[in-house]
Design a protein around this nucleic acid. Structure first.
Lengths: 319, 319
DNA sequence: GTGAAAGCGCTAACAG
DNA sequence: CTGTTAGCGCTTTCAC
C-alpha cells in the first residue's frame, strides 16, 4: 500500500496523500506492527546486548556508550542480563537471537560451546566486549586484563612497595577479574615478588566488605605495605578502614583499585586506579555493528585493544 | 507442521517423531523465528520496561525485582532508557509498543499526552512504578514521595533540629525528587519551620558534589543543624566533608539522605535514610503484569502504595 | 497421531 | 505516483 510508503518515508508519494495518511494515522493512534514489518523485510533494527549484571556500574556505563553511538543509526539496543551464569547466558542469547537482531554485543570471550555455535550460525555481526585476552568468535573490543594487572604490578613495585596483599571478588565466573589477578601475580613474579596475602568475598555491600577484609588482612599481616583491590568500591571500603586506623597513606600503606569509577571522586583520598575504557568500549562496539549493518562488506578489526590509563591518585606515590 | 508442535511441547506427538525432530533441530543449529511466531499467534512474551536511567542505582535494583519475578513466567523484560526526557520517553515507548509486548512497566506518572494515549490505546496492562502521587493510566505501584518527604521532616523536627538545609539534584524532570522536596517543605511548614538554605546540582560525581555543596552551604549558613539530601550518594559526600571538618554528628549537625542504597554500608557513619522499596516495586509490578497476561480478567489494585521505612542510622539521633 | 491450508500485518516487486 | 500481488515463517484450524 501507499500507506506503508508514507510511514517509512520512502519517496514517491505526493504531498497531499502523504498528509492524509499521516493525519489518519495520528487520529487512529496507529502504531505500526514491527513484527509483521520485520517478517516481511527480514530486517530488525535491534542490537542484542548481553551483559552479566546491571548492578555493577561498569555495565551501565558501557550501555551508555552503546546507546549514544546507536542513537544516530536507527538501531536500538536490547539488554539481556546473565547474572554471570553461562547457562543463563546461553538461554538469553537463544531468546534474543530468535528475534533476529541485526547484531550482538556480548560481554566477555568465554561462552558455552552452544552459545558460540549459535552466534557463529546467526550470520550477524557479533562483538565481544570488555576483554581481549582470547580468541573472539567474530570480533572483540576491550582491554587486556592480563596486561592491566601486570602493569599495575610494575607500577607498584617501581614505587618500592614489596609486601603486597590482594583483595577481590570470589567469582570463578568473572573471567576478567581472574585474568587481572593472574596478570598481577605474574607481573610481580617477574620481579621475584609474591603476594603476601589474599582474600576473596562474595555478596554484600562492596564498601563494607572492603572494610572488613582490609581489617582482617592487616590483622593477619600487619607489615603489608600495599593493598591491591579488584575493584574501586572495595578499595574505597579499605580506604575508610585505613583512615580510621590512622594509617599513613601512601607512606605506610599504599593502595590501588580498578575501574576508575567516577562515583568515587569526593573520597578523602583519590584512590589509585586504572580506567577500563568502559564508555569507549561501548561506543566502539556499537560503531562496528552499525557500520557492518550498513554495509555487509565493511572492513573491521578483529581485535580492538584499548589502552587503560593508570591514575596514581593519592594512594600510590613515590615514597 | 508437526515440527511446530514438538518445538512448543504441544501434546499429541509420538515419541519417535518428537525425537527425530529434536535431533534435526539441534544438528541444524535451528533457532525458531519468534517474529513469525509472534505474528501468527499474536502473542509476544516481552514486557517493555521504561526507565529514566541505568546510572542511578535505583533502577537496576527495580530491574532485578522485575527480572526475578518474571523469571518464572516465560515473560521477558526489555529495557528502554529515557534519560529523563519526555520526548525520548515517547519515542522509546512508541518503538517498544510497535513490537506488541504483553505489558508495559514505566517509571513515573508524568508522561506526554501522546504517550498516555498510546498506552491507553495499546490495550495491554500498563503499570506505572515508583510513584503514587497522581492518577495512573491503568495501575501504579510505588511509594508516595510527598508523604516520604513529609515524614522525614516530621522525624527531623521531632529530634529538635530547627535550622535545616536542603541539597538535591537540579532536575526539573525528576518528578519524584521534586515531590519529595515539596512534601518535605510542607511537612516543615506544618510546624512553622522553613528551610534555611537550599542548593541544587546537576552532573558530575554525586559524592564530590555532595561534598562541595555541603562545604559551600556551611560557609553561607554556619549555624545549620541539619542537612537533608535528596539522595544517599550526595549525603555520603556531605558526610565526608563534615567528618573532615570535625563536626560532631549528629550532635552539632544531623543529616539524612534518601534511598537506602546498600552500597553505602561501610561508611564511617550510617546515614539516616528512607528505603524506597525498589526491589519490591519491581517484583510487585511484574507480578501484576504476569497475572493479567495469564488471565485477562484478573483483578488488580489500581494503586499499590508501599510504605518506605525510615532508618535512623547514626546521623539522626535524639540530641 | 499427522499433514494441508489459511492467514497474521507488513514489505517488495511489479504493473498500471 | 499509486494500486496489486505474493510471500516472510510461523500458528491455528481442520481434515485425514
Amino acid at each position: 500500500m501507499t500507506v506503508s510508503r508514507v510511514l517509512r518515508n520512502r519517496g514517491d508519494v505526493s504531498q497531499t496523500t502523504r498528509e492524509k495518511v499521516l493525519e489518519a494515522a495520528k487520529t487512529l493512534g496507529y502504531v505500526p506492527n514491527k513484527i509483521a514489518g520485520a517478517l516481511a523485510s527480514q530486517r530488525v533494527n535491534l542490537v542484542a546486548v548481553i551483559i552479566p549484571s546491571l548492578r555493577n556500574m561498569v555495565f551501565p556505563e558501557v550501555m551508555s556508550g552503546i546507546s549514544s553511538a546507536l542513537d544516530e543509526t536507527g538501531l536500538q539496543p536490547v539488554v539481556g542480563v546473565t547474572d554471570y551464569l553461562p547457562e543463563k547466558e546461553e538461554k538469553v542469547l537463544y531468546e534474543m537471537l530468535s528475534w533476529r537482531p541485526s547484531g550482538v554485543i556480548i560481554a566477555g570471550l568465554e561462552h558455552t560451546d552452544a552459545a558460540k555455535a549459535m552466534m557463529k550460525a546467526s550470520g550477524i555481526p557479533v562483538v565481544e566486549i570488555m576483554d581481549t585476552d582470547g580468541d573472539p568468535i567474530d570480533c572483540a573490543v576491550g582491554i587486556s586484563h592480563r596486561k592491566a594487572g601486570a602493569e599495575m604490578a610494575r607500577a607498584i613495585l617501581k614505587q618500592g612497595y614489596q609486601n603486597i596483599g590482594f583483595m577481590g571478588t570470589k567469582m570463578p565466573l568473572d573471567h576478567r577479574a581472574r585474568k587481572r589477578f593472574e596478570g598481577f601475580t605474574q607481573g610481580l613474579a617477574k620481579e621475584g615478588v609474591e603476594i603476601r596475602d589474599q582474600e576473596f568475598y562474595s555478596g554484600g555491600s562492596a564498601l563494607a566488605k572492603g572494610r572488613e577484609m582490609t581489617r582482617a588482612m592487616l590483622e593477619r599481616e600487619p607489615d603489608l605495605d600495599f593493598l591491591y583491590y579488584s575493584n574501586d568500591m572495595i578499595a574505597a571500603g579499605g580506604l575508610m578502614e585505613l583512615l580510621d586506623q590512622g594509617v599513613d597513606i601512601p607512606g605506610q600503606v599504599g593502595m590501588a583499585g580498578f575501574n576508575g569509577v567516577e562515583l568515587l571522586q569526593g573520597l578523602p583520598r583519590q584512590i589509585a586506579t586504572m580506567d577500563a575504557c568502559r564508555t569507549e568500549i561501548g561506543t566502539k562496539a556499537a560503531q562496528i555493528i552499525a557500520a557492518r549493518v550498513e554495509d555487509k562488506e565493511a572492513a573491521y578489526e578483529r581485535i580492538t585493544d584499548l589502552t587503560p590509563k593508570i591514575s596514581f591518585g593519592d594512594t600510590l606515590k613515590r615514597r
